[in-house]
Design a protein around this nucleic acid. Structure first.
Length: 465
RNA sequence: GGCCCGUUCGUCUAUCGGUUAGGACACCUGGUUUUCAACCAGGUAAGAGGGGUUCGACUCCCCUACGGGCUGCCA
């Protein structure tokens, strides 16, 4: 017998961009499903009409797409399913697991305020719970779940372990509002059930909700999914992530020039581990990822490690793919696009650039020699290497470079020979050459620069120096 | 206030009663080197505090401290 297919989902509410914590939650769900031949679904929890916006939905989709987290099937709008939610609420009514409550919001608020002022736990117990329907007034009402008053409700969480809640701490939560729209507690359960979700992997801010949602599953006689509540991500200072930490949106990380593969790797390791595995591809991550590797404490963001991880992925990326991602970065960051010539040079030079950079801005910085065009205005530090003696040596070098094959072995022979003939060490030749070719003092090796630029451009730059 | 969760190097973490407490990032030192990086080698660095249980606790239990979450006709 085969085990049923795994179905996970990511269910953000569209009230802003996709933040880094949401990105990681989505990633965990994606890894878990993809590593087991399961499905990863996407549902937008847009039942709060006040705060939900189509722009936020678009931003979330863009963020997931950039991260490479592809979802199965259509994006589900929770709001579109409101009739189904209301239907289930009424089924609960029929089953006797829910009831109509006619207490007004004002009444309840007043009660809670008084209880709190008296230092008591403001648990509202509706007087309508056991009322005879024949006594129901002709007033607006909400549908409340008839939650068990005694005993306890336990959830068996794959990350947090067994967590039990005393039922007398929980009130009869509202499942259908007076305007007939569903509350989150109902909508989530109905949608997860209808969508066949088997594993709910989400932030641990929902841990307590899981108990109440379990009651809804039980009220409907449905199977409860496997829970996995993962700790939230904190800022570098250990505090909850907030605006002042900056760079919260996943898209901002793209605009800062982090490659998606590195981002995925870093986020996977943030709060999850498998032995000593640190750098891995997404395929490797899918094969390794499991729920017991998830830690129970909140993790802090560490930009240094993010950068290191990204550097590793840039180095191992394929040249063509890297170039494509670089161009996308330029567009997102609002930087000028590369000319055809620059693009060509980047393609040629990628082999010697990619193992030196951790981010796309760094990659561009290392590639400055190739992206600059004549006339080159040398930086002061570079210009200092171009005195008359050096120029003379460069001139004789220019002569030597006129013919011969343009490959590393031959260039090496020519440069060594020129240095020897001039009675100087190789370093004394490389510095002015670097200055002439790039106009700066920090560059890739002089051989790589010449190889990437080609003979004509190299000679032209030497001549202009 | 009540309920729930958490706490191993600065950071991410390994450990699932017996280890010189391991790895990675960062940092420091050295090496390689035509510059800057990258890279290689080595080093500094941890079980929040206090009680138990046990022959033996980072690991199990309790208390305290600190951090976090929930306690809505928000999600």
């Amino acid at each position: 017998m085969s085990s049923p297919q795994i179905v996970t989902r990511f269910a953000p509410s569209p009230t802003g961009y996709l933040h880094i914590g949401g990105g990681r939650t989505a990633l965990f769900n994606w890894l878990y499903a993809r590593g087991r031949g399961g499905k990863f679904l996407l549902r937008i929890e847009d039942t709060d009409r006040e705060r939900s916006t189509p722009e936020a939905t678009a931003a979330i989709l863009r963020g997931l797409t950039w991260l490479g987290l592809d979802w199965d099937g259509d994006v589900v709008s929770q709001f579109d399913r409101k009739d189904r939610h209301a239907e289930v609420a009424h089924q609960m009514l029929d089953r006797g697991t829910a009831y109509k409550c006619f207490s007004s919001k004002e009444e309840i608020d007043t009660f809670r305020a008084a209880e709190e002022a008296a230092g008591r736990y403001p648990l509202f117990l509706s007087p309508w719970r056991d009322a005879d329907p024949s006594n129901h007034p002709d007033l607006p009402y909400v549908i409340r779940m008839k939650a068990p008053r005694h005993g306890e409700t336990a959830i068996d969480d794959k990350v947090q372990g067994k967590v039990t809640f005393q039922n007398d701490q929980l009130d009869d939560m509202i499942v259908l509002r007076s305007d007939l729209t569903p509350t989150y507690m109902l909508a989530v359960v109905v949608d997860d059930h209808d969508m066949g979700v088997t594993h709910v992997i989400r932030g641990d801010d929902h841990l307590a909700n899981a108990a109440r949602q379990t009651m809804v599953y039980q009220a409907m006689g449905w199977d409860v999914p496997v829970w996995a509540h993962i700790p939230l991500i904190h800022g570098p200072d250990g505090k909850k992530l907030s605006k002042r930490h900056g760079a919260l949106g996943v898209e901002e990380y793209q605009a800062m020039g982090y490659p998606a593969a590195g981002m995925r790797n870093y986020l996977t390791r943030l709060g999850w581990a498998k032995g000593d595995a640190e750098i891995f591809t997404s395929d490797e991550a899918k094969a390794m990822f499991d729920l017991d590797g998830i830690g129970r404490a909140p993790a802090r963001l560490d930009f240094k490690k993010l950068e290191h991880t990204c550097g590793q992925h840039i180095a191992m990326a394929e040249d063509a793919a890297l170039l494509a991602e670089l161009l996308a970065y330029l567009a997102v960051a609002g930087k000028p696009a590369l000319t055809d010539l620059q693009r060509d040079l980047m393609r040629k030079g990628m082999y010697c650039l990619k193992d030196r950079a951790k981010t796309f801005p760094e990659l561009l910085e290392k590639a400055a020699f190739a992206l600059v065009s004549r006339p080159i205005a040398p930086e002061p530090a570079a210009a200092a290497f171009l005195d008359s003696v050096s120029r003379g040596i460069l001139q004789s070098l220019t002569l030597q470079l006129q013919s011969g094959t343009w490959d590393k072995a031959n260039l090496e022979a020519i440069l060594t020979q020129t240095a020897t003939a001039a009675g100087i060490g190789f370093g004394k030749l490389a510095s002015p050459l670097r200055a002439a070719l790039a106009g700066r003092t920090a560059t890739p090796s002089v051989y790589d620069m010449m190889l990437v630029l080609g003979r004509d451009e190299t000679l032209a730059r030497l001549g202009a120096a």
